[in-house]
Structure formats: structure tokens, C-alpha cells
């Protein structure tokens, strides 16, 4: 089958876009939490991409564009989920895992094996902490830490100015650290602190 010049171009873009399937699926998994929904989301994303590829501006970020489509698809499909209360005790903005760990010490010494090492966190711990984040926070951590999108790309995906991205990312990380902290205490990674759990 022969394609026209324009068709060839879109075909090339599509082939490029297929490279991001795993990343998109990963993100969809994290947002929806189950395989079936995530697969549907990714499939819908690619069909929508095909339909709107003519609106894609050449030279702009394909990956960010795909994430934006996926995000909008997710929001449309799970609007209810997205509307869950996002404001989880915002008073802990200043929570810092590092500060807590070093609270009873003069200094944190990464070389000192006796003190807490972040490497001790297991996959489950991270998953638990991530899954407990409200969706709005979870997505931004995913974009930044997991998918490695730049602030500019994130602002493109979620349609917010970069300042908002920065502050939301900051709050998300602090909240994530809080979950990790409580998890670590529960599990006893942090010695002698078991009783601290709220």
C-alpha cells in the first residue's frame, strides 16, 4: 500500500509514538491501578493520537503530547475518581524526611551504616507510598521522577504554568516522604521509633 507524502509523515510520527507505549502504560497503570483499564487507556490514547495527529505541531514534544492525551482520556473516563478530595492535610507541607531522620542527630552521614539508609526501602514501600498519594500529586511525581519529564513538559501536559508545577511537585514529594516515613517507622527501619506512629 502506498501512502502520500503527508501520510508518510504521520506514519513516521506514529511509529515514533509507539516507542512510548511502555511509558504510557506504566503511567496508566499507576493512575488506574489495574491492567485492564490501563490497556484500554493506552489503546484509546493511540486511536485519539491517530485522529488528532494533524493538529500536532511539528517540532513540539511528542512524548508530552501523548501524555496529555492519555491524561485527558483518563480524566474523561474516570472523572469521578479524579474528583475525590485532593486536599489531604496540607499542613504538612514542611515535612521533610531528612529533617525527621536527622532530628535526633547532629548530622546525617550517608556513609554511617548504623544510621538509616534510603536504600532500605523496598519496592513495596515505594508502591505503597505512591498509591496513597492523591491522584493530582501522584501524577506529577510520576511525570517527574519516573518518566523524567522536564518542568516545561509537565506544564504542557497538565496545562498549568511552570510555577504551579514546581509548587505542586514540592508538595507531592513532601507528602510522599511523609508516607515513606510512617511506613519506615511501621516496619522498623528506623530503630527505636516504632512508638511514633500516629
Amino acid at each position: 500500500m502506498s501512502f502520500g507524502k503527508a501520510d508518510e509523515k504521520t506514519r513516521d510520527l506514529e511509529i515514533l509514538a509507539l516507542e512510548y507505549m511502555d511509558a504510557l502504560f506504566n503511567f496508566a497503570m499507576r493512575m488506574s491501578g489495574n491492567r485492564e483499564d490501563a490497556e484500554d487507556l493506552v489503546q484509546d490514547t493511540y486511536l485519539k493520537m491517530h485522529r488528532f495527529l494533524h493538529t500536532f505541531e511539528e517540532g513540539s514534544n511528542l512524548k508530552a503530547w501523548l501524555f496529555k492525551i492519555l491524561r485527558n482520556t483518563f480524566i474523561n473516563k474516570y472523572r469521578k475518581k479524579m474528583r475525590e478530595p485532593q486536599e489531604i492535610n496540607d499542613n504538612n507541607e514542611e515535612f521533610s524526611l531528612y529533617d525527621r531522620i536527622t532530628a535526633d542527630k547532629d548530622e546525617y552521614d550517608p556513609l554511617n551504616k548504623s544510621s538509616f539508609n534510603v536504600e532500605e526501602f523496598l519496592e513495596d514501600d515505594v508502591k505503597y507510598a505512591l498509591d496513597n498519594l492523591p491522584l493530582a500529586f501522584r501524577e506529577i511525581v510520576c511525570y517527574s521522577d519516573l518518566e523524567g519529564l522536564s518542568y516545561e513538559e509537565i506544564s504542557e501536559v497538565i496545562g498549568c504554568p511552570i510555577g504551579t508545577v514546581k509548587s505542586r511537585l514540592f508538595r507531592s514529594r513532601r507528602l510522599l516522604q511523609k508516607f515513606l516515613w510512617s511506613y519506615a517507622k511501621k516496619k522498623g527501619y528506623l530503630k527505636g521509633k516504632k512508638g511514633d506512629i500516629e
Partner: peptide
Amino acid sequence: FEQSLKKVIRDKSQTYKISETVRQRIVKQL
């Protein structure tokens, strides 16, 4: 500390792979 925490979150968060059948289905559909 923050640097290593960031790395831990990235490295220790499970990465999911899309199943090959679904991938083929999407490619075929396109």
C-alpha cells in the same frame, strides 16, 4: 539524601510492561 531518595523512588517503583498481545492489537489497529 534527597538525590538518593529520588533515585530510590525511580529505581524501586515497579515498572509495568504492556502485554505483547495488547501491543500487537494497537499496532494492528493503527
